[in-house]
Design a protein around this nucleic acid. Structure first.
Length: 443
RNA sequence: GGAGAGGUGGCAGAGUGGUCGAAUGCGCCGCACUCGAAAUGCGGUUUACGGCAACGUAACGUGGGUUCGAAUCCCACCCUCUCCGCCA
């Protein structure tokens, strides 16, 4: 039992309710419901539209009342300026009567507006048209494969078995922190560091991402913006002062543009960061309990792109290539999966997962997830840009992906590079980061 | 942690209960003048929501409250700055 669930009224509810655009739902309810259906969700448009209609009728009535009140108040001011107290007092009495029902209308309007916002905040992004139909991961489509899984002349072992001899210390970490923690020691720590540095250097180099060292403790608003809240509070760690540990640097990097209006010339913006990530893993009891695959704390090099709608597909491809390049440089076989409508994360409209080959499990395991969120997060964050030669503003598109998860990459390097004697070959591109070390030997 | 100051339009900056969505300056856009430019003059220049429109409503950090009426008064929170303390 976790205590993270936001109590009613506790959360920060974004004032200018953007998220899903109620106007477009109103104009095309069938398309909205069809999108929900692809997500495996029940139709909701009808009920949202009724709520919205109720809200607008109350709002109209409220505004009419306010208009009358404002008009009379002005007249009172004018009368008082002329020292005509009799008229002023008469008007005051009149407005007082007028005002009878107004507070109730205002309260009702607030209530309905908050209710609509709450409903809209809890609805996931709708899948893009080219996302395949499917209920769960069985519906994902393999779209590419790179590299040949190595043929072993001995039975490849699980990293959890041969890792400890190389400095992967589960017991020491468990003694102080509990399950799902590990301490890396000696060459293992350095290999992990080398991986992170190599990834960061590559993303900031040829791939054009700006390095950021962001906060990893954030407030409610940030998590509402990227979509972890309000629905997934139980997956997160919360501090005693009400902040949250980020589950991914996507939160920190994307929120860098919250509530801002960018010029088209500033785009695209590409951010990368190497940060610790924290996840409660509340819903994954029993899964991946052995080894370094699923930890409460892990490091990840995150990629985030902020762009215009017409360029977000292109940016998605670039991000995918940026993540895949790391796997290829490390010589790790992987496959690219296009996630089906039922398996995508809350904020995504289209996601590719990269899965790396793990010989001990004889299968591919997720090591990166690269998503185009369209304008979904931008609406929640109120992040806009000014199109050149146009008057108003439009919502940005945001994308995020791992480039890559450092801990899982370490696992892949260990397992794919293991030798029968329990040593591990250090990939060539990392050797410069390891003082030229070519092989990690058992201690 | 203690003490103090402050958050107003793209920017600077006035406004401390009444025709204030907000003076003035800068910037920006248009027009005039000019061969052209500068200078000058005139006009314009926030956003969101509802409405076919006329128009209405809301917004002066955020959220509440007082009042016939709030940028202005009260409460809470957020943020910035200055000084002191502590600290990697």
């Amino acid at each position: 039992m976790r205590a993270n669930a936001l109590k009613a009224g506790e959360g920060i509810f974004i004032a200018s309710a953007a998220m899903h655009d109620i106007r477009s739902i109103r104009e095309n309810p069938a398309a909205f419901d069809a999108g929900l259906a692809r997500r495996g969700l029940a139709p909701d448009a009808q009920s949202l539209i009724e709520l919205d209609a109720g809200l607008r009728s109350v709002a109209t009535e409220m505004q009419a009342g306010q208009a009358r009140r404002n008009e009379a108040s002005k007249a009172i001011g004018q009368a008082m300026a002329k020292k005509d107290m009799a008229t002023a007092d008469a008007l005051k009495a009149e407005v007082a009567a007028l005002k009878e029902g107004l507070p109730a209308l205002e309260a009702r309007e607030r209530e309905l507006s908050a209710a609509l916002t709450d409903r809209l905040l809890a609805i996931p992004n709708l899948p893009a048209d080219d996302v395949p139909e499917g209920e769960d991961e069985a519906g994902n489509v393999e779209v590419a494969r790179w590299g040949e899984p190595r043929v072993f002349d001995f039975a490849p072992r699980d990293h959890a078995d041969f890792g400890p001899a190389l400095g992967l210390d589960f017991e020491g970490a468990a003694a102080m922190s509990g399950a799902r923690f590990a301490a890396l020691r000696g060459g293992m720590a350095r290999l992990h560091r080398a991986l992170g540095q190599y990834m960061l250097d590559t993303q900031t180099g040829a791939n054009g991402y700006e390095e950021v060292n962001p906060p990893i403790l954030v407030r409610d608003e940030a998590l509402f913006g990227t979509g972890q809240l309000p629905k997934f509070a139980d997956d997160l760690f919360r501090t005693t002062d009400g902040r949250w540990l980020i589950p991914t640097a996507e939160v920190s990097l994307t929120n860098l543009v919250r509530e801002s209006i960018l010029t088209e010339a500033q785009l695209p913006i590409r951010f990368t960061a190497l940060t610790p990530c924290f996840r409660s893993e509340a819903g994954s009891a029993g899964r991946d309990t052995r080894g370094f695959i699923r930890q409460h704390q892990f490091e990840k090099v995150e990629l985030v792109a902020i762009t215009t709608p017409d360029r977000s597909e292109e940016e998605h491809r670039h991000m995918l290539a940026s993540a895949e390049g790391i796997l290829e440089a490390l010589g790790l076989p992987y496959r690219r999966m296009l996630l089906c409508s039922g398996d995508m994360g809350f904020s995504a409209r289209k996601t590719f997962d990269l899965e790396v080959w793990l010989p001990s499990q004889n299968c591919y395991r997720e090591i990166s997830s690269v998503s185009n969120c369209g304008d979904f997060q931008a609406r929640r964050m109120n992040a806009r840009y000014r199109p050149e030669g146009e008057k108003g503003t439009r919502f940005l598109h945001t994308l995020n992906g791992s480039g890559l998860a450092v801990g899982r990459t370490l696992v892949a390097v260990l397992e794919n590079g293991q030798r029968e004697d329990g040593s591990v070959v250090v990939p060539e591109v990392l050797r410069g980061y390891m003082g030229g070390l070519e092989v990690l030997e058992p201690r």
